[in-house]
Design a protein around this nucleic acid. Sequence first.
DNA 1: TTGCAATAATATCGACTCGCTACTATAAAC
DNA 2: GTTTATAGTAGCGAGTCGATATTATTGCAA
Lengths: 178, 178
Amino acid sequence: MANTSPSDLRALFDRVTRLSAADVWNAQLNPAQMATLEYLARANRFSRAPSHVADYLGATRGTVSQTLKALERKGHVTETRSSTDKRRTTYSLTQSGADAVAGDQDIQQILAALPAATRDGLESGLRDVLSALLARRDSRSFGLCRSCKHHATGPYCQLLDAALTAEEPNQICHEHAA
Amino acid sequence: MANTSPSDLRALFDRVTRLSAADVWNAQLNPAQMATLEYLARANRFSRAPSHVADYLGATRGTVSQTLKALERKGHVTETRSSTDKRRTTYSLTQSGADAVAGDQDIQQILAALPAATRDGLESGLRDVLSALLARRDSRSFGLCRSCKHHATGPYCQLLDAALTAEEPNQICHEHAA
DNA sequence: TTGCAATAATATCGACTCGCTACTATAAAC
DNA sequence: GTTTATAGTAGCGAGTCGATATTATTGCAA
């Protein structure tokens, strides 16, 4: 296991990616659509705009806009326009969208079956790769609300000056800062 | 780092995948084309047919056929038809194709910068996930020639009854068996 | 308060993936 | 010598994806 060459490791990562992507198609969704649904399922109410999804997935706003329209046609998300700032749109999962995310268990079953030590090693490696990727493209971290410097007990967000629900501290936030 | 939930880990994996895919587009290639080139760069001469690529990437033959045609139009691969079995076609990288693979250094640089222990943890985790995925879809392993049961010193392949070049034991083989 | 730059979301375009179903060759098995 | 399996391809429809342009809307400054 020692002396892993970066190119071998990269090939290994790519292959796992491709094979697990091939599994996602077994819903009526493609990988981009599933990734979008999964993000929406984990993001808080301040972070569900097309531009947030684009930023999170590393895609352009145009692409994400089309993906969200496709998901809307399939009934997995609904669009809500902001009344205060009419440029803003927010998307939410419908029940059918939430079901699709919950039903996508294939890779999760494999991960759940791994020994805890292996899972931890995998996670810490992926986290390191992710931080390097984020640093290079200087993208946002999308961390959990509760680990943010603007998070105050209450629960309350000092940046957005908003009271939070009980679940929100455990959701992903676009404005997250360490 | 402990108590990693499978769904968090899955989300982490997806995000790294998407962000690194976004980087690949910076060549004139999309992720599927780059993955195909990378496979061809690592596969031995018995393993470069469209169906082998399809099997490796978990895609259909039709899709791979089109991808190879696109790569051929761009001058990154060349087609060679077998004279003994006229159904068979083999693809090889051109210099331009090899350059494209070599130029795709972004993720490799990140991986190379990781501490060896982190890299090993990442690799062993990915390997476990890969074997589980392969077992479920009962796909081939595509291991290195030299680790195959048909590999004999010489170097020589007992299954295909063929003498091997010096590099071939270190390439990927479609017929690899443990 | 008019003017302009920044922001948010879409629309459109062309290249391409992807699963799918058909289809053509060719080769092997009976 | 016919059936069956294998290898590759074509064409279809849905949809991604980057690029570019367009339309609203907002905020700021002269």
